[in-house]
């Protein structure tokens, strides 16, 4: 009596695995049957049209890449601006007071130059703060509004101000995507620069580097390596988001679907093709990402909790 129970317990791993496979294959088969079933898979359609869909997806890759590169320029500049450090207001006031007291005790310094210095400091502080907050605002707006709205906004912009280009769906799309990814990349660049920022500039200066050289030889190399994983994830996310360009009339696999599904009823075949091509690209990209990560990883250093709305990579557990 106890035998078959023990038998089951010993072989539990195998039973488990087999049942898992049964569940997976079973449900996939069930769905397939529901959708295609009696009709039979239209392989002919696939062989005839896969080129079309492949081309459409490659258009997306093209658009994504260009937008990504432009976005990188935007992201880097905005990200840099957002690292402009300003002391909290209270500390700033205190430092001003200290400065003023020191200066008032030195007879060689005139009243006018003190006031001038104070004024310039205030303006510089205010400017840095405003610039930083504008950068923050830009990123918040990009992240707070849907990509679709941004695309339609860009399209409207073209319709109103640049009507001769209003029909260039691809151009409008790339512009919208570039600004969108620029916003997200700004966050990535900011996080990367700031993660390295803290003690490193001081250490570099202590060795004797000037600010600029510290930036060039210490901060940037580290920051660049930190940034690669989130950046590549952003690329994958952008690629997936680029499907939205179809609303601009960009010839894409989606519009083909809309056109063809009507008379052919080959929805499943289209779906299968599109899914296959997409997953192939995203999986390949994921492997590239992992390889890059392994290559460029700095042990012990990573961007923490950068909010990645479209990240493909899974959050890693805390050690």
């Amino acid at each position: 009596m106890a035998d078959w129970r023990k038998f089951l317990r010993d072989r539990w791993r195998y039973i488990d695995t087999i049942l898992a496979l049964v569940v997976i294959v079973g449900s996939l088969w069930y769905i397939y049957d529901l959708l295609v079933g009696s009709r039979g898979l239209d392989v002919g359609y696939i062989t005839r049209n896969y080129g079309l869909y492949l081309h459409a997806v490659l258009t997306n890759v093209y658009a994504t890449t260009i937008a990504f590169l432009v976005g990188m320029a935007i992201g880097f500049s905005v990200g840099w601006l957002r690292t402009a450090r300003t002391l909290p207001l209270a500390k700033f006031v205190v430092s001003m007071r200290v400065e003023r007291r020191a200066r008032s005790e030195d007879p060689a310094i005139t009243e006018v130059s003190s006031i001038l210095l104070l004024f310039v400091s205030l303006v510089w502080y205010g400017a840095k703060y405003t610039v930083r907050r504008i950068g923050d605002g830009f990123v918040e707006i990009i992240r707070g509004t849907p990509l679709l709205v941004q695309i339609l906004f860009a399209a409207s912009f073209f319709v109103v101000f640049l009507p001769e280009y209003a029909t260039e769906g691809l151009l409008i799309g790339i512009v919208a995507l570039a600004i969108n990814t620029g916003g997200y990349q700004a966050e990535i660049f900011r996080a990367g620069l700031q993660t390295v920022h803290s003690g490193q500039i001081e250490a570099a200066r202590a060795i004797g580097f000037s600010r600029l050289r510290a930036m060039r030889y210490v901060i940037l190399p580290q920051a660049l390596r930190l940034i690669i994983p989130p950046l590549t994830n952003e690329y994958i996310g952008l690629f997936k988001a680029s499907t939205l360009l179809f609303v601009l009339g960009v010839q894409s696999e989606i519009s083909y679907t809309a056109q063809h599904q009507g008379f052919a009823g080959d929805v499943f075949e289209i779906f299968a093709m599109v899914t296959a091509i997409f997953l192939a690209i995203t999986v390949t990209l994921s492997f590239v990402v992992q390889a890059l990560e392994r290559r460029f990883r700095i042990p012990g250093l990573g961007i923490e909790a950068v909010r990645k709305p479209r990240g493909v990579k899974m959050p890693a557990p805390v050690a």
């Binding site: 488990d16 695995t17 049942l19 898992a20 496979l21 569940v23 997976i24 449900s27 997936k240 988001a241 499907t243 939205l244 179809f246 989606i254 679907t257 809309a258 929805v267 779906f271 599109v274 899914t275 997409f278 997953l279 995203t282 999986v283 493909v312």
Partner: peptide, 26 residues
């Protein structure tokens, strides 16, 4: 228990890999 973890992994990877627009349309 693989009966739970494998189908769940499949679900997660499929639904994350597909762009939402494609999911919506199909």
């Amino acid at each position: 228990v693989r009966i739970f973890s494998w189908p769940a992994s499949l679900y997660v990877n499929v639904f994350r890999g597909m762009p939402p627009l494609i999911l919506v349309i199909f």
